[in-house]
């Protein structure tokens, strides 16, 4: 996507927002300029928006790293071994559609109110989404490809390194790009109570709680920026690690 198009799209969205603000004309929906001012003010404040942003970003990024480290190898193994997949497949099938967020109360009780419970719940959500994509990708590799690489003298370990891993990492990144929005939504929910840091806390407790609407929207903007940044980052990584998926014939 071209930079100019992105800038144009941003402009259109901002104009739409401003029009809506004029139309509704109530305190709950301040215009973009007012929010931008609040955003700048909150950013500069001590333990302000910037700090909350960093706390949230840290929680999401570390969760992404952990869930990738766990889900990619697990998916690779399940995708390769029919016996293991026959055992775990039905369990994953049942667990996959359960909305993991409903376990948040239990997780808060078990892991406490700190970072650990938030990171755990995000990992739980991401893990299954990445696992399933990687597993399906690994088991969908054409047997001819495996045969021809094995015929060159590759054993199990070399197959992992030269076939399964490169075949599935781009798929894992795609899964991640799709689920990063969910991860942030889960984080927002987890941060919106029983904590004193993070963008969820900033939006719900710190701003909404005292009816400071411009501040609240500043938080919403920060959360959107977080999502956008991560999305860009994963997009970049995809192009970097899987250039073959973007070539034109």
């Amino acid at each position: 996507m071209r930079r100019r198009d992105l800038a144009l799209a941003t402009l259109v969205l901002l104009i739409g927002w401003q029009l809506l603000a004029w139309l509704i004309h109530r305190e709950v929906l301040p215009g973009p300029w007012e929010v931008a001012q609040a955003f700048a003010r909150a950013l500069l404040a001590r333990r302000g928006l910037g700090w909350h942003f960093l706390v949230s970003a840290w929680r999401v990024v570390i969760s992404i790293v952990i869930s990738m480290l766990l889900a990619v190898p697990a998916g690779l193994i399940l995708g390769q071994s029919r016996a293991l997949d026959r055992f775990f497949g039905p369990m994953i099938y049942i667990v996959y559609p359960i909305p993991k967020i409903v376990f948040l109360p239990v997780i808060l009780l078990l892991l406490g109110l700190g970072d650990r419970s938030k990171i755990f719940i995000i990992c739980l959500v991401l893990f299954f989404q990445i696992l399933v994509v990687v597993r399906d990708q690994a088991s969908a590799l054409r047997p001819e490809l495996i045969y021809s690489v094995r015929s060159l003298g590759a054993g199990r370990r070399a197959l992992f390194r030269y076939v399964y891993l490169p075949a599935t990492v781009p798929a894992a990144l795609t899964a991640l790009r799709v689920s990063v929005g969910t991860a942030i939504a889960v984080l927002f929910f987890a941060e919106s109570f029983a904590t004193t840091a993070g963008l969820g806390y900033y939006i719900i407790v710190d701003s909404w709680g005292r009816l400071a609407y411009p501040d609240m929207y500043a938080g919403v903007m920060a959360m959107s920026l977080l999502g956008l940044l991560l999305y860009f980052l994963i997009d970049r990584l995809e192009r970097r690690l899987a250039p073959w998926m973007f070539v034109k014939d």
Binding site: E144, L145, S148, A158, Y162, W244
Partner: peptide, 27 residues
Amino acid sequence: LVLQDYGLLPWATVWENIALPMRLGQF
């Protein structure tokens, strides 16, 4: 072994595909 559907690595360039036995040897 040469197969009908080539068995090439889709994520590797022509050169990297041919060099695969070299990489395996190093591995």
